[in-house]
Design a protein around this nucleic acid. Structure first.
Lengths: 330, 330
DNA sequence: GTGAAAGCGCTAACAC
DNA sequence: GTGTTAGCGCTTTCAC
């Protein structure tokens, strides 16, 4: 039993493919197909359980009703939640989501972008590891519908959905300083992306209030080697007897939290923690972690809106939308 | 600047599309195309940055190198992690993943299945909400490559990757009873899927060791109304002064944990908790939660292996693979 | 060794 | 109101 095609319906009804196509695409009235014919077509289509071949449609129209979603790791709760929300919003407009995890790896990202473009995805949503890549540059210059989120590169013009990083971090750290901690350490993934740099900068600016702040309390760990190097860096911070630790994202915060619970259980109560990015874990973990939560739903809805705008009008100007984090004090 | 097609290359080289197609598909030697011609083709293809139009390929071949991954919620860490692993494994074989979240909603699931099949996805991986649905039945009877995981329906023949539910739960509860708790409550999502039923049954069987066990300590909450109804049910359990609570999955466990921390902080230390499914949160939360962890990587690799097998030989027999959970005592 | 040509299922300009 | 027809870009059989 083969799948029914538009031709089958046309033949059985003694009509042409055109007529059938028009009607099934709800252009029957527009094309002035008689009500009777329309009804006959719909009936038979229903009876034969006609399902359009979307691939053939894509080939013809150049559109696929598919959007690509490329992030460092879809298993990261932030990207998973954002992805879920995006999926929902796009589903309402008839789009499906293809996901790809880049592992912060430039060539993986470029490869994924290429396959997705060849697949005729109608647009791409990327938390890019390397906004300066040639692949991305090409996309931008040919006005391919594209929204970058979570990461940005100030010199490169594009559609961006980001959060305010520097001031948010700065203010949160200032608040932290108010509760009389002075020896504050910072732990970050090695900042290969601009947003992490901004968060660190925000931290630095806040710490200017502290006379002779020890810059050795700014520590970084490699993405590829998180487990071990977090352990090492936390040890350094604890040996310096920090009163508080600031983490630049939830990945490193979670990791740090684990190390602290594992090796410094007895010193946990004296410690204040602050994390950029929220995590469900912070609702349960000790010590309490105050966090700067990213507005997942707004990120998703702004991203989708911007993408759809560029899809419907590829010549539209680039936008940069900066959203605010919210401080969750725990 | 239009995209280069196979015809462009053929024309510029004074060859036919056939030859170019053969060579670019690495069938040059097989088809005895001269080394020189092959080289010229590869060179020009590289120079023009030829990228095959995968949609056209799909239309012709009926394959799309795309796999669908349908789960209740991609933001659920278990499904996100499994998805990530599956994505990686499939990428190695040239497949991309389209995701869909069904929200435990039958019609959403059926709709997604239909769109993905029309999209000519080469296979589907589903944690199905309703294995008895007609849509799924059709797929199975036409031998569409399909692997069901996480959920099963014993009367329905299909490819299944599942974990052993009943005995695992039973044994874990028996172990829990050994540490002298007798008043043990159970909290579950209303078991519309078989695996949850099995977990509850495992619990029941273990509790048969307890004389006059109060069946009112078995509580269920609705998926659609988790927040509120968990709160209500936990209250009932706590009013009965349970010494331990068993959760049938991580969703309800996390929810319960939250309620306990919020409203029963002072009684937390006397409480023992057991959860089917692990969660990162359990590494940090109090009270300690012992869990039955699902082997995410094995689930992913078995699923992919089985799917690829059925893709390469659609007539192959159905398999059912049952994996073991591991007890993580905290 | 290479090419001509059919056709995958659909859309849409144009014809009647 | 409805039909004819020309592709979309690719694969693949068959011919030479």
């Amino acid at each position: 039993m083969k799948k029914t095609s538009i031709a089958d319906i046309a033949r059985q009804l003694g009509l042409s493919k055109t007529t059938v196509s028009f009607v099934l695409n709800h252009k029957g009235d527009e094309k002035k197909i008689s009500a009777q014919t329309q009804q006959r077509i719909f009936e038979l289509a229903g009876k034969l359980n006609y399902q359009p071949d979307t691939v053939a449609q894509s080939l013809k129209t150049g559109r696929s009703n598919t959007i690509g979603y490329l992030v460092p790791d879809i298993a990261n709760p932030f990207f998973a939640k954002t992805g879920r929300k995006i999926e929902d919003l796009l589903a309402k407009c008839g789009y499906n989501l293809i996901i790809g995890s880049t592992d912060e790896n430039t060539s993986k990202e470029e490869e994924l972008i290429n396959t997705l473009v060849n697949r005729k995805t109608d647009g791409l949503i990327i938390a890019s590891t390397n906004i300066r890549s040639e692949t991305l540059h090409n996309l931008l210059s040919k006005k391919f519908p594209l929204v970058l989120f979570d990461r940005e590169e100030p010199e490169i013009q594009a559609n961006y959905i980001v959060v305010e990083n520097k001031m948010a971090m700065k203010n949160a750290v200032i608040e932290l300083l108010a509760s009389k901690q002075r020896k504050i350490g910072l732990l970050s993934i090695t900042p290969h992306v601009y947003s992490l740099k901004l968060r660190i900068e925000g931290f630095r600016e806040a710490m200017q209030a502290v006379p002779d702040y020890d810059p050795r309390l700014l520590r970084t760990v490699n993405y590829t080697d998180i487990k071990q190097s977090t352990q090492k860096e936390i040890k350094i911070l604890m040996d310096h007897e920090v009163e508080a630790i600031v983490f630049t994202n939830n990945l490193i915060a979670t990791e740090g939290l684990w190390v602290l619970n594992r090796f410094y259980k007895n010193r946990i109560d004296q410690l204040a923690l602050l994390s950029f990015d929220d995590s469900e874990i912070f609702d349960y973990a000790l010590p309490r972690v105050t966090s700067l939560a990213q507005p997942v739903n707004e990120i998703a809805s702004n991203t989708v809106e911007l993408l759809l705008k560029q899809i419907s009008d590829p010549e539209s100007e680039f936008s940069r939308i900066e959203l605010q984090t919210s401080l969750i004090t725990r």
